Computed example of a mutant assay.
Amino acid sequence: MAVTIKDVAKLAKVAPSTVSRVIANSPRISEKTKKKVRKAMEQLGYHPNFIARSLASQYTQAIGLVMPSSTDVVFQNPFFPTVLRGLSEGAHENQYALTMTTGKTEEQIFEGVVQMVQGRRVDGVALLYSKVEDKVLTYLQDQKFPFVVIGKPFKNVEEITHVDNDNFRAAKEATEYLISLGHERIGFVGGNLNLVVTVDRLLGYEKALREAGISLANEYIIHEEFLREGGQEAVNALISLEKQPTALVVADDLMALGILNTFDEMGISVPDDMSIISFNNVLLSEMSRPPLTSVDINIFALGYEAARSLIEKIENPKEPVKRIIIPHELMIRSSCGQPKINNRIII
């Protein structure tokens, strides 16, 4: 015989309505009561029928995830599996499921979001990126549909709940670290300029150079995709210069790994011939040869806090707009050193 809410209520010594509120994770129920009811559910092997619940309440208990590009490209970068773990943890704690868009083009992704919203397939949406121009974000605002952005919105920052790092400050500190080692010819390898994270990190890099009295060299600034191949393309452009940089600020660890591999194939030593500092501090950065100096942006926390903030907004439409800044930390390893004098690299 199937276990019912009444059975749980009897064992927990509460009303059936209280059990329903615990299942819905209602803020009106104390943590002590929630623990008591959940313990009773576990003892009895009771599993809520979320499909029936959603039909009755008009809630799906699901969050839609929107990626910046096709999923086969996205999952090459360790950032996204890690941020998804954080989102999953935050959603699971509140008994929400995750639904992912699967479009390979921006238009397909937009259509997927429209279908999720219009079909009420999800209760809210998490954007796993922030673009300078993004009609998905504009659409969600127009529909007044609950959403959260992982990253800093380019416009209307005060109107949009978002979870981000201080990428301007992080890039400035990374560049200042290279300057403190004696580097003056510092290159920047960034991602797509339509991504706000790229813009913020580029501005932080430029600010550090200006404050140090170092002239900006446009030929030292390269933009590629956040992929290993992007790093390889950047190397080819920088090494062809007559006056090459002695150090690089790279906006993503995966790109930095591509750069390391290409340098190794060319016989260019890191950090003896070129210093490299990058971002994200994924596991690969610590395992690379040499281990990468990287800015730890606490990717898991970005996803976890995004899920929590979105669920709060879903369950309380009057929840105020939040700006959550996740702290960063510079992880100093072996990929940075003092510059050589007249370090012309011959290939």
Rank of each mutant, 00 (worst) to 15 (best):
N192K: 07
R121K: 15
N192F: 08
Y59Q: 03
V22L: 11
Q95H: 13
S269R: 11
V37H: 00
L87Y: 04
L209C: 09
E229P: 08
Y139I: 11
I314T: 07
N236F: 12
A9T: 08
M67E: 13
M116S: 06
Y59C: 06
P271D: 14
Q232F: 10
E211Y: 07
L84I: 12
D134E: 03
V3G: 13
K10M: 07
H223P: 10
V199N: 07
K13P: 06
G151Y: 04
V163G: 10
P16S: 14
E233K: 08
H328K: 14
E106D: 02
Q141E: 15
I259H: 03
G45D: 10
D253M: 03
V136D: 02
F300T: 00
A306M: 09
A56F: 03
I63D: 00
L216I: 15
G112E: 01
K152S: 03
T71I: 02
I299M: 09
A307G: 14
A306V: 10
V132W: 10
L330V: 12
T293L: 00
I346L: 05
V321Y: 10
A174E: 00
Q244H: 12
F168L: 11
S269A: 15
R120P: 05
L127G: 10
K322R: 13
L65P: 03
E158P: 09
L302G: 00
N281F: 05
S294Y: 05
T262R: 05
S69C: 12
L283D: 06
G204L: 11
F263P: 00
A251D: 05
G124V: 09
M1R: 15
V189F: 03
R38A: 00
P320Y: 05
R28A: 02
N280M: 09
V196M: 01
N77G: 03
V117C: 12
K39E: 01
V132D: 01
Y59D: 06
Y177E: 05
I109W: 03
V14T: 13
P68V: 12
L128T: 01
D166L: 13
V117M: 02
M255D: 07
K34T: 12
